[in-house]
Amino acid sequence: MDDDTIHELFAVLQPISIRRMFGGKGIYAGGRIFALMLNDELYLKTDAQTAFCFEAAGSRRWTYQREGAAPVAMPYHSVPDEALDDPDLMADWARLAMEAAIRHGTKKPPRRSTGPAASRTSQID
């Protein structure tokens, strides 16, 4: 799925940003990740309050497995098929995903510098 289509699907949450990650794309609104595009499949953020809604609609939970390790279930579910063809329905699912992202926690803090200036600052204490 191209970036223009992703922007169209999530018009209700604009502005969004799209970043490459996990060999796919992370989709953000308000600085929070609420969706992933992996292997040509779109996944939305879920939590204990929303996962059952996605499962009732036939969505699959995203899992990954590293060689020699047990599968890990991630807090993302596939988008229900009918939502891809219905902008109003997609807006409802997108809002649920954004609510889960907000409940998940605060925005990521900026990265700390690890350069020479950071070393000098920590030695001043």
Rank of each mutant, 00 (worst) to 15 (best):
A29V: 07
A29R: 14
G58R: 03
P109E: 09
R20V: 10
D92T: 10
L42D: 12
I6L: 15
M74F: 07
G115Q: 05
T114C: 06
M37P: 00
A11C: 02
D81G: 10
R32M: 09
L96P: 13
P75G: 05
F52Y: 09
A35C: 09
Q14F: 04
I16R: 12
P75M: 02
L44R: 03
I16M: 09
E8D: 11
C53H: 05
A48R: 12
K25D: 12
D40Q: 15
I16H: 10
Q65W: 01
G23I: 05
A69N: 04
T50F: 09
D125T: 14
Q14S: 15
A56T: 09
H7Y: 05
L38G: 04
R61D: 07
P71K: 08
R112D: 06
C53N: 04
H7Q: 08
A118I: 10
Q14Y: 04
L84C: 11
L89G: 09
A29S: 15
L42P: 08
A94V: 12
K45H: 11
A57S: 11
W93C: 01
G31A: 04
T121P: 00
L89E: 12
M90I: 08
R60Y: 03
E41N: 15
L36H: 03
P109L: 12
S113F: 03
G24R: 01
F10W: 06
G24N: 15
S113H: 03
G30L: 06
R19E: 13
E55A: 03
L89R: 14
K25A: 14
K45W: 01
Y76P: 02
L36D: 11
M98P: 02
T63M: 14
R120P: 01
R20H: 09
D47Y: 12
T50V: 10
L96N: 11
D88H: 07
H7F: 05
M37F: 03
G115R: 11
D4N: 13
T114W: 04
I6Q: 09
